[in-house]
Each structure stands twice: as C-alpha cells, then as structure tokens.
Amino acid sequence: MFIDVASTIESLEKEKYICSAEIATTVFLAMKMEKPVLVEGPAGVGKTELGKCVASSLGMDLIRLQCYEGLDEAKALYEWEYAKQLLYTQILKDKLSCIMENEKTLSDAVNRLSGEEDVFFSEKFLIPRPILQAVTSPRPTVLLIDEIDKSDSEFEAFLLEVLSDFQVSIPEIGTVKAAHRPFVLLTSNNAREMSDALKRRCLHLYIDYPTRELEEKIVSLKVPECGAALVAELVRAVHRIRELPMKKDPSISETLDWAKALTLLGCEVLKEDEAIRTLNFLLKYEKDIELAKKNRKEIFAH
C-alpha cells in the first residue's frame, strides 16, 4: 500500500517508473478511494506501463484486457463452455438414464432433470474471462483495461457494473462480488469520447509528455549506460522536435530507443551528424525526418 503521494512516487520509481506529482496523486487517490482511473493522453507516454508498474509495486497480480472493435462480454466477462457441457451430457448418458429410470411420466422426468440442471450451469462449465478473473481472484489484482476507446460503446455498458460495484451478474448463477476490490486502470487514446456514465465512475488522469527534467530522469534510469551529458542534450533535442508540427511527435519509448542507439554507437555527446543519421529511431515518417533535418540548426543548437 502507498502511504502518501511522496511514497507513491518512490515506490513507482523502484519499479523504474518515474512519474510526476499529478500521476502519483491520482494513483494514490484511486487506491485510497477504491475508484477506477481513466488514463488518457498521446500514444507512448507510458499509460499501459503505469498499470504494470502499479501492479508490481503493490505486489498484486496484473490482469490485462486488450480492447478491440467487436470485443463482447463473452471475451471480457465470462463464457459458458458449450462444448464441454455437450461432451459431459454425452458421457453421462448412461448415468442420466439411470437416474430417469424410475420416473413414470414425461413430466416427472422433466422435473427430475431440471432438479439436476444446476450441474450444467455451474462454475465448472464457466470460462472466466479477464474481468471475472479479476473479480473472483483470491488475491488483490490490478485490472488493466487497455485502449478502451477501441471497443464499442455497448461494451462500455457491461463495464459499468464492474466499475461501480466491482461485481459481475451471471443470470444462471447469480452475482459474483469481488473479495478484494481490484485496482482498475482504463487507458484511452482519445479515438472516441467515453460515455458520461463511465467517466462519472472513474477518476480522470491526463498524461502529457513529461517535462525535460522528468524525461532526463527516465532516460538515465532506463538506459543507465547513457552518459549524463548525452542524456541532457538528446532530451533537449527531443523537446525541441516536439515543438515542431510533426505528423507524429516522438514518444518516450522512442526517446529511449534513440538514447540506446546513440550509446551503442559510442557517443558521449550529441553530435549533429550522428544524430541526423539516427533520426529514424525517433521519427517514424519520412516527412517528419525531413522537417527535422530542415530545422537541424535550431534543434541541435546549444
């Protein structure tokens, strides 16, 4: 458990996740208030990573649900294992006729059978999908619902029960309530707007690109072989590139790739030529690279 905001920053740092006071505050509050968090922000700022690191720093299991178009409750909540049910009825045919032997009329037989029906709709034949797993898990878990904006709006409706009451209703069995409330993180890339009902149940966190100091810290933590001088210079260059009207701004992970590449090339300081040659680690569109080359003077100026 995190004790306060400062200790949240510290424990996440131990998991090699450097976060701002904003991120830490929301994570800390979400834990205290037992509320889900909706994380939004540009791609590659570490939204998914946050979920993983929260799980490992709290010593909880991580259950991840990747959303996509057409994801339905059978893939997210639970599904009846029809084939297994069928197989069991086939195998138990003899047993069934044995039970039914004494019943004289058809309606007696039906009554008898419906008395046994529960067997086939029990947890034995239920495949728990990520959300039910998180709810039924005997240990506290972190449930990461990734890229919720990719799912359909119908799917959001299924989530509402889970997000507010941490329970799943299965008509044949009843309501399954969580023993330990899972820590729920939802991430979104703003492909579409979430419904108000969902937002109301969540705390909201917008993660933007980090400040220079923060990004320097991230790079030196993740790429320790990279020298301090190089870190400072390359992060400054990245920040200047983000100010240009790029098709896709370089994300943190791309900054890290660039830092790794430059270190492998044996750079100790950022040299313009080498930087230009390795720009493709940072920028993924030809147009963006050209634009960066055009502005090389400003980007690499001291």
């Binding site: 306060d4 905001v5 701002s20 006071a21 505050t25 929301t26 800390f28 509050l29 937002k199 909201h204």
Partner: peptide, 23 residues
Amino acid sequence: CHVDPCDRDVFRQSLATTLVKDY
C-alpha cells in the same frame, strides 16, 4: 481527506482528477 492540501501540485491534481472528466 486523503491528501496534504498544502502541496500545490497534489492539491491541484486532486481537484482536477475528481472534478474534470473531459481532458
């Protein structure tokens, strides 16, 4: 109730995270 309101960033974010749901 859970945070130290004297820290500006923490205080600001506590308000933002609970009140503002549209970025």
